[in-house]
């Protein structure tokens, strides 16, 4: 089975995280639909040329997060939970905010300064969109 997942050798993150991220993305955009059967651990390992243990770990973590369900002897399916897309974006947002908070600390920014920077950033996004909407 061809999986279309791409693992990067230069991406600094562990391979299991890359696999998790790509599967979550497929699920959140609906390419892998709720309840749909997904490749078995060995199938995905063979097609990605990545060790079985790495894919197994990605599947275990995805199961813990409720993204997929693995049935013994039957393979894995995407969890039939409809709210998955928004929830995954929610998690991603939390992760980015925490990273921003950490960088703010390294730079010695106060909480107010950090909040102001976030406000600025979302302001820029609105500005970027404005001209298109007026056309």
């Amino acid at each position: 089975m061809h999986s279309d997942l791409v693992i990067s050798q230069t991406d600094g993150r562990p391979m299991y995280l890359q696999i998790m991220e790509q599967i979550k993305l497929r699920v959140s955009v609906g390419e892998w639909a709720a309840g749909q059967e997904i490749p078995s651990i060995r199938q995905l390992a063979v097609s990605l040329r990545v060790s079985v243990i790495t894919v197994k770990r990605a599947y275990l973590e995805l199961e813990r997060e409720g993204v997929i369900i693995t049935q013994h002897g039957k393979g894995s399916i995407v969890a039939p939970d409809a709210g998955l897309g928004p929830r995954l974006h929610e998690e991603e947002l939390t992760e980015h905010l925490e990273r921003a908070a950490r960088l703010g600390e390294v730079l010695g920014l106060s909480k107010e300064e950090l909040a102001f920077r976030l406000e600025e950033a979302s302001g820029r996004m609105v500005d970027d969109r404005q001209p298109k909407e007026m056309e």
């Binding site: 391979m15 060995r42 390992a45 063979v46 040329r49 060790s51 079985v52 243990i53």
Partner: peptide, 27 residues
């Protein structure tokens, strides 16, 4: 890796190319 699609088969390989080992090894 295709050999490993069969769960009864096993591979031991020596290498000093750690990138190959990192990519496909379980142990």
């Amino acid at each position: 890796m295709a050999v490993l699609a069969d769960e009864d088969r096993t591979i031991l390989f020596s290498s000093h190319n750690t990138q190959d080992v990192e990519q496909i090894s379980d142990q």
